[in-house]
Amino acid sequence: MREKVLPVLTVVLGILALWYLAAIPMNVREALTAAERAGAVVEGGSATERQQLPALRLVLLNPALALEGAWTQDRPRLPAPHQVAAELWSSVAGQPPGSNRSLLRHAGITLGATLAGFAIGSLAGILLAVGIVHNRAMDLSVMPWAIISQTIPIVALAPMIVVVLNSVGVQGLLPKAVISAYLSFFPVAVGMVKGLRTPDPMQIDLMRTWNASRAQIFWLLRLPASVPYLFASLKVAVAAALVGTIVGELPIQRGGLGARMLAGSYYGQTTQIWAALVMAAVLAAALVWFMGFLERRTLRAMGVPA
């Protein structure tokens, strides 16, 4: 553990340093325009002439002005990390939790839909896997299509699902949950099929010599053997469910992190987009970590050496 901390910290600090550096050429045009308006002398000609020059050249011509304006603008092309952090703090702690401008409320909306979709999707995935393992016809007919459907950009269906469910009167959480359920369904189904098939013929034969029924083989052998596979695919599925919810929120526009990103892109509020993005990242990390936590607890309770 200790030998990981230092390299990871170095890499993270390196990324932050790169980020700050990249903000200088990214924001140089707006910084120079603002400085010119404030009365400073800007090298590189008039505003229209500056349009022709590459950003790096402008930085070299006006190093002081570029540095000064790079990390303090209201609507930068690339906000500096501390600006994102400030926006995150003000929209999480600076707003009442129920207000429409509170990022916590939007994160809550996204989290609710993600969990609902994840629950529906993984339950359906487990049931399909059980069917596939026990029924040869289902295995041969459904499995190829399940694999093909993985290669289809399912997320593209999101706007249509939302509109269709709206027109039959289903609103609120469910349309988004349907999309995230669809995305989390296949990882779980594929992983569970693999897991339920891990017991080798010898183990199954042993169960048969004990005169175990099919149901007993399932509950006592196949299901316990599939638990590690289940958790591995649940981790993939919960991340996919979050992506599905965020994409599903784009056409709905009733709150949520996806709606927040789209609103930010409409009004040029870059810092708001970045804050929503960081929030989504935190949410994803928390969900995956929680699945890992459940995995460790369950496996330890089952006596699997960690």
Partner: peptide, 14 residues
Amino acid sequence: ALPIVGIAPIMVMW
């Protein structure tokens, strides 16, 4: 594991 699709509005802006 992150929802990187969310970067799309920023890339469209850039």
